[in-house]
Amino acid sequence: PNQKTAGPNEGILKKAIDSLDFEVNIYDTKQNLIYSNKKIPRAASAEHQALEETLRTGKSARTENAYAEGCGEKVLDKTTYPYKENGKVAAVIEFIKDSTEEKNAEKRKEFLELLSKSVSEEVVMIDKDYNVNFCNGAGLVQREGPCKGKCYKLLHGISEPCWKRGQDCPLVRVMESGKECLVEHVHSEKGKNNIESIKAYPMKDAKGNLLGIVEVLRNISRQRELEKKQAAIIGNASEGIAIMEGNALTFANNRFLDMTETTPEEAAQLCARLIKDVKNGDVVNETVQIDTSRGKIGIEVRIVPVPLLNKKADLVYLIEKSKE
Rank of each mutant, 00 (worst) to 15 (best):
K296M: 05
C181S: 05
G139P: 01
G72S: 11
N65F: 02
L274E: 10
D21V: 06
S45C: 06
T29I: 14
I158V: 15
L154I: 10
N280V: 08
E73R: 15
G208W: 03
W163M: 06
N65D: 15
Q289I: 05
G166S: 00
T57F: 00
P8F: 00
K228S: 08
I241H: 03
R143K: 09
I26L: 14
N280L: 05
N86W: 00
E180H: 13
I297Q: 03
P305H: 00
I198T: 03
R42I: 11
E85I: 01
E180G: 14
G298R: 08
K128C: 06
A248L: 08
N25D: 13
D258G: 04
K15W: 10
F134R: 12
I198K: 02
V186K: 15
V172T: 12
K323A: 06
L257V: 00
Q49A: 11
V288N: 10
E53V: 05
T260E: 07
T29V: 15
L318R: 03
P82E: 07
E85A: 07
S116I: 05
N209G: 12
N236P: 00
Q142S: 04
P161G: 07
D258S: 07
G139T: 08
N193F: 02
F251P: 04
L13E: 04
C162W: 02
D205K: 02
N25H: 01
G295A: 04
W163C: 07
N310H: 03
K228L: 10
M244A: 06
I297T: 04
M175T: 04
E85K: 13
E122T: 04
C135Y: 08
T63D: 07
Y152T: 09
L154Y: 01
H187M: 09
E94T: 06
A232C: 08
E265H: 08
D77S: 12
P202F: 00
R108H: 08
